[in-house]
Nucleic acid binder design. Structure first.
Lengths: 349, 349
DNA sequence: CTGAAAGCGCTTACAG
DNA sequence: CTGAAAGCGCTTACAG
């Protein structure tokens, strides 16, 4: 079987014995077309199983009805759910989202962004680590950019973010109330604002609550950006090998549920009990966190909401050629489960 | 700030004082262009920060360098990882994958497929439930289609699949060896071949091992297609409410880890112990399955491999205008963990 | 209500 | 090595 060349608007016009302008009018539900010719055209379209070529259309109209999304990867449920919500919202308004993943490899980022620009996406949403802020600003000269779950200080770029700092401050306050004093912290490096904000919240809260930060219990590692689960496990295993029990924190805050789960595996493997010997706190509230043993105390980020909100803002950004800056901050929520020793009165909040 | 109109090849030609044909030649690393004019052109490109318009290019060349992927959703890790592997492979050869999710809503499927055709993707990979086989066949008239993790009998369409039937036969044999007799089965309905094959494998193996299928312990529910976790929990809860313990299976096979995890929650909530009172088996081997309590016995599907293989086949399909049929079958693997009572000799296999 | 024609931003033979 | 011109498949004023 040989696939036929796709029919064009010219073929349809010939088949229906009308001009291509008329076919175009039918296609676009435009200008009064008589019922009769409309039927003729539609019949011809059916016979030839014609479908309009979007590229040709977009070259004329100057619009592509597509947006670009840049994320580290889609394998992390946090990204997957956010993107899904954003895509769904866009799709309902006949926009297609081009998803691109750069796996935290800087050399990919530029290539991906250029690809999106070549495709003339009408806006770009950037989630996570495009590390080269200058690059992002250049891109924003050409096409509206929305930063999702991050920001670039002083760039005048729109952003939808969570209030990471507050969430961590609350969490630390609760841990203190629960009797914890020696609070450890494990995170990817602080390149992204969302991650940095959490750490700031941690530091502020420790200070505010009169607790000392034990620097030997703070681990910031670049490895934790990807394969968080695996790398969290490895890092914790190494820590447990090197230290005596008294040198461990009483509770360990982490910047991701996946990291937390890896850490828990290492801890359990070393024969410690959670939360009896050490408490663990995650971040994201992915499905996994409610099914680990013990279940994981964490910070909930509402992916549905950030995804939808991002689309709303992107739509605003596309509307006008003049630039306006949107800054939206969403609240997170604390989820108390069994991986920390918490009094009932706290759990029931 | 007002965003400028994007520069075109004409602008570049003017800026560099050459013809647009020459600019095009530089862009496409084509025909001998003298070093000097090349530099002139590149400089002009820099000054205007010109980027070529893919739509215009594709309308001339007839190629879009993009493929379409259709999946139920990207929130299930099984789909997410497969797509990621496929996207990565495609990306390395300068192809972009347009990901579309139809959420098992039939009315979406046609719209999505048309959208992909309008965008003139050079091939389409379909994973999971596009239910209308006729629709798929029509699409395949226009553009090469690869079925991923499913097939359409007698359609002459290429497919990359797992050997689901064999995997289930092996699993049943192992369960029998472990002493299980009353084996239950919980799955989404059998609309898709991958799901149907598993059930066939189950039936065959039961027969082959001289075990009776207790039909009261077979649940096939449409609800389990989406939100598998939630809906698995609900279904199991209902079952536990309605039955005495003696009416439950000794071990329950499920068609997805997410379903299995929901089931385990319901079982534990009802006060039963796993695997002491009832064994549970999942399917997919997503990250979650190694962290539940108890950890989940399951069937591993190598997402990396099916994703990459799918790209390899898609590339083949795009190469020629004559149709050739590819049928590739991949092996799965059994993963023995703590959610079933299994003798050590089996676990160590 | 319908058609003829210009033009969107490119690539591709073809001259020179 | 470089340029002029045709043409890809559409939409959009503009006549009639």
């Amino acid at each position: 079987m040989i696939r036929k060349r796709a029919a064009t608007i010219i073929d349809v016009a010939k088949q229906a014995n009308v001009s291509i302008g008329t076919v175009s009018n039918v296609l676009n539900h435009a200008a009064n077309v008589s019922e009769k010719t409309k039927r003729k055209v539609e019949e011809a379209i059916g016979i030839l199983s014609y479908s309009p070529n979007d590229a040709a259309r977009s070259i004329r109209t100057g619009r592509t009805h597509s947006i670009g999304i840049v994320v580290p990867d889609i394998m992390n449920e946090y990204y997957a759910k956010t993107i899904q919500a954003l895509m769904d919202a866009a799709y309902k308004e006949n926009y297609t989202a081009l998803i691109t993943c750069f796996k935290n490899r800087p050399q990919y980022e530029e290539k991906l962004l250029n690809m999106l620009i070549d495709r003339r996406v009408e806006a770009i949403g950037i989630m996570g680590g495009v590390e080269d802020n200058e690059l992002v600003k250049e891109v924003a000269q050409k096409v509206p950019v929305l930063l999702i779950d991050r920001r670039i200080e002083g760039s005048g770029l729109s952003a939808v973010q969570f209030d990471n700092c507050s969430a961590l401050m609350e969490m630390v306050a609760v841990l203190k109330e629960a009797g914890y004093r020696k609070i450890g912290y494990m995170s990817e490096t602080l390149a992204m604002t969302n991650i940095a904000d959490r750490y700031q919240g941690f530091l502020q809260a420790m200070k505010g609550n009169g607790l000392a930060v034990d620097e030997s219990c703070v681990w910031l590692s670049k490895d934790l950006q990807l394969e968080k689960n695996q790398n969290g496990y490895k890092l914790m295993k190494k820590i447990l090998n090197e230290r005596k029990r008294s040198e461990l924190p009483e509770v360990l805050l982490t910047s991701s549920d996946l990291i937390a789960v890896g850490v828990m595996d290492a801890v359990k493997e070393a024969g410690f009990r959670i939360p009896h010997d050490i408490g663990i706190v995650g971040f994201d509230n992915i499905t996994l966190s409610n099914h680990t043993f013990p279940t994981l105390t964490t910070v909930e980020q509402d992916m549905e909401t950030i995804g939808k909100t991002s689309w709303d803002v992107i739509r605003q950004l596309m509307k006008r050629r003049t630039k306006i800056v949107h800054e939206i901050t969403l609240e997170q929520g604390l989820v108390f489960r069994d991986s920390c020793k918490l009094p009932e009165r706290i759990k029931n909040r």
